[in-house]
């Protein structure tokens, strides 16, 4: 790809993106490669297409033998430069249920520690003849770089820095739709460390694309430097937001935030922004409690609250496999024979 200097031609630019180059995963140019890099690359129809397909794969997952031959002969590599057992296992299980071969590459066992460059690592893996790369990296943008360096493989963003985690957003949308019927008109509060959260950035894009309204609830130190162009409301008082929301989405708080002077203490965070047992009573009946995991019980959410019936945290994990099956199928499948 040639370097672009204009704002409008740039990929993955967030809520105010003027151009959405590949609105649907399944309708990219014939012969052209398809990737899933950012929710910003999908429009409403593109997201809904994935959710519809997910319904079918949820049904497959409930069979006694939850496996279909759709991607037989395809190879999916998970290339994880950052620890994430959950996302990696979810992608690998999705690939296996589609009968694809899977390979796993993590930084602790790799040549990267011996000084091999990111580009050499990627080119070496692609040279083995693979069909898709699921990449997780601590730096924003690495999936774009990899997509530029590779020629044949589809690239799936499994989380890049603070930027995006598109399959998490898709599984969140699926879970909300499954539990509440639709996203249109849903009032969703995303609570916690928005600044450092790739989940929040993808969720804001996906939720609002599907017609939900989003309120971000966090101390100013845990919000992005500016929210100009983000289609969201902001609040610093969780108690005022909870009674009027349909979904409360809690983000994981990393303990090192205290060292950066972003917060005085975990105790103060829990007291002001944690979903404590008392605070959870402010929710209307039927309001969902969500979390991308892993949960810090007792910090952003009380242990009992995480286990309440309206908490759908484990449901999110289960739906994650089916959503990732849908994404892999759309990117790698023939598009004709679903094999279901």
């Amino acid at each position: 790809m040639t370097a672009t200097v204009s704002a409008t031609a740039a990929p993955g630019v967030g809520p105010a993106a003027a151009v959405r180059p590949a609105a649907r995963l399944s309708t990219a140019k014939p012969g052209g490669r398809r990737h899933l890099l950012s929710i910003a690359d999908l429009d409403r129809e593109g997201i809904e297409e994935i959710l519809r397909l997910t319904d079918m794969f949820v049904e497959v997952s409930e069979r006694p033998i939850p496996r279909v031959p759709a991607l037989r002969g395809k190879t999916v590599v998970s290339l994880f430069f950052e620890d994430s057992t959950r996302t990696r296992l979810s992608f690998e299980m999705a690939a296996k249920r589609l009968s694809a071969d899977t390979m796993s590459f993590s930084v602790s066992t790799s040549a990267v520690k011996k000084g091999e460059s990111l580009r050499d690592t990627v080119e070496t893996i692609e040279a083995m003849g693979i069909d898709a790369i699921v990449v997780r990296h601590s730096a924003a943008g690495v999936p774009w770089q990899i997509a530029n360096w590779t020629e044949g493989a589809a690239v799936i963003n499994g989380g890049d820095g603070w930027h995006e985690h598109p399959t998490q957003a898709l599984l969140d949308c699926y879970t909300i739709r499954q539990q509440r019927g639709r996203l249109d008109g849903q009032r969703i509060a995303i609570v916690g460390d928005i600044r450092h959260s790739r989940v929040a950035r993808s969720d804001v894009l996906a939720f609002t694309a599907l017609g939900a309204s989003v309120t971000l609830v966090a101390p100013p130190t845990l919000l992005p430097p500016t929210l100009a162009g983000w289609p969201v409301e902001v609040s610093h008082r969780l108690d005022e937001v909870l009674p009027s929301c349909d979904v409360v989405y809690l983000l994981r708080l990393q303990r090192e935030r205290m060292q950066e002077a972003l917060l005085p203490s975990l105790r103060e965070y829990t007291a002001t922004y944690g979903l404590t047992r008392q605070r959870a009573r402010l929710l209307v009946p039927g309001a969902l409690i969500m979390h991308p995991g892993p949960v810090n019980r007792g910090v952003e959410i009380a242990a009992e609250v995480a286990d309440q019936p309206n908490s759908v945290i484990t449901r999110q994990v289960r739906n994650g496999v089916a959503v990732r099956m849908a994404v892999l199928y759309l990117l790698l499948g023939s598009g004709v024979d679903l094999g279901v």
Binding site: V13, P15, A140, W162, H163, T226, G229
Partner: peptide, 15 residues
């Protein structure tokens, strides 16, 4: 640069 683009792109900025 810390601003609208760094906020969207998830890249740590400097003001």
């Amino acid at each position: 640069h810390e601003g609208e683009w760094s906020s969207r792109l998830g890249i740590p900025g400097q003001p």
